[in-house]
Design a protein around this nucleic acid. Structure first.
Lengths: 118, 118
DNA sequence: TGTCAATATGGACATAGATCGATATATGCT
DNA sequence: AGCATATATCGATCTATGTCCATATTGACA
């Protein structure tokens, strides 16, 4: 079964390529883009992304993230879900553990919108 | 009189250069960085940035932004204030009008955090 | 099968934030 | 001075969200 992603990743891609700073974006594009950026605009989630990227192999299971974050397990689970649904992190279940990893392209997509011609 | 900026721009700069994806950021860095990204993570504010950047001369007064946004004047004023306090836009008062313009470096700062080595 | 560990979900709560109408402030013009 | 326009602020309201505890679910293993 494929987990449904409430945030349309393809649409986000389009919003990406409609350059924010060279021509006016539509209300719909702004909506999609804001949703993706909003997923990143939280201290806990930024730290999660940072922790994941700095982890050996670029991945970590949730159990390794809870303690360094200083948040409860349900809260960490919630934040990872937000990141996942925004397409910013990937997850892979191996037996009992779920390994999360960042999706660099997703971060680059956001970066590209902000920096025209780079 | 100098308007106070609740968001420490210098600190945001530091948070910038602490590469998000190559080493772990601190809780404080995450806090500052999230505040800046959060200022951008809103459909209305993304459209404002887009409208400003696409305006002739790269600037526009609030009166020209209210109508295309479809929001009330106080709401637009609020969003511009958020963007200004985050350092994402600059403002300059000329007689009755206040002209706003994007600060490309501020956008680039966010982009740089997301894309290591580019 | 029963237990334990990892993760997810549901419900509750508190705070933050987006929005508006009404009003205040500031500036130019007659 | 008085009025009109542009912008800012205030107060209220409704919604979104971050957080936790309690509990459900899943998979490994004795």
């Amino acid at each position: 079964m494929v987990t449904k992603l409430p945030l349309d990743v393809a649409a986000a891609g389009e919003a990406c390529c409609a350059p924010l700073v060279t021509e006016t974006i539509t209300a719909e594009q702004a909506e999609v883009l804001a949703a993706r950026i909003k997923a990143l605009a939280d201290p806990a989630r930024l730290r999660l992304v940072s922790l994941l990227a700095a982890s050996p192999g670029g991945e970590a299971c949730q159990c390794d993230l809870t303690e360094p974050l200083g948040l409860s397990q349900p809260t960490v689970s919630h934040h990872l879900k937000v990141l996942y649904q925004a397409g910013l992190v990937a997850k892979e279940k191996r037996s009992t553990w779920v390994y999360y990893s960042v999706v660099p392209e997703a971060l680059a997509t956001i970066a590209d919108v902000l920096t025209p011609g780079r």
